[in-house]
């Protein structure tokens, strides 16, 4: 019994076959697994390890390296605020503070309803349109506090 949907399981098998060495598919697989499950639970790690013929330890070793991969759930909307130099110079720290106050949580925490989590992140390649944040994979740029409120409200309404 797979922890993944049949479509994802198929995708993983195709992915493993598309590289000269199957293990090359590991990092994309982990990220796509997380997209589907919200995080990487032990069952997902075991299944991916078996699929690639690797040990669970080898897979965990890789997970520990990459900053986007997580073994515990985050909020449904993971708010990632950049405070690196180009954002800092245009108010990125103020945007992070604003998000924390609005959502009532600190960095790396999740709201009690599981809707939002916050993470201060490093440069996301939006320097010329700073300050910027990403909600899951969506970029939001040239932010001010009012725009942040609108963005958070939009996601809250989406539920």
């Amino acid at each position: 019994m797979s922890v993944f949907s049949p479509a994802t399981r198929d995708r993983f098998e195709r992915l493993a076959a598309s590289y000269p060495q199957a293990r090359s598919a590991l990092v994309p697989m982990l990220l796509y697994a997380q997209d589907e499950l919200g995080y990487l639970p032990p069952e997902a790690i075991a299944e991916i390890a078996a699929l690639l013929g690797e040990t669970e330890l080898a897979v965990r070793e890789v997970i520990g390296y990459y900053s986007m991969l997580r073994t515990a759930p985050a909020g449904r909307y993971h708010v990632q605020v950049c405070t690196n130099i180009s954002c800092m110079l245009r108010g990125g720290e103020e945007i992070l503070g604003h998000c924390q106050r609005r959502l009532g949580i600190h960095n790396r925490q999740t709201t009690p309803d599981g809707m939002f989590s916050i993470e201060e992140v490093e440069c996301m390649g939006a320097c010329a349109w700073a300050p910027a944040l990403q909600v899951n994979y969506d970029f939001h740029q040239e932010l001010d506090p009012a725009k942040v409120d609108e963005i958070l409200e939009k996601y809250r309404r989406q539920g």
Binding site: N84, I85, S86, E122, C123, G125, A126, C127, A128
Partner: peptide, 10 residues
């Protein structure tokens, strides 16, 4: 692309 200050390859 991840060097802080760089957003051109995107």
């Amino acid at each position: 692309e991840s060097e802080p200050g760089t957003c051109k390859d995107r």
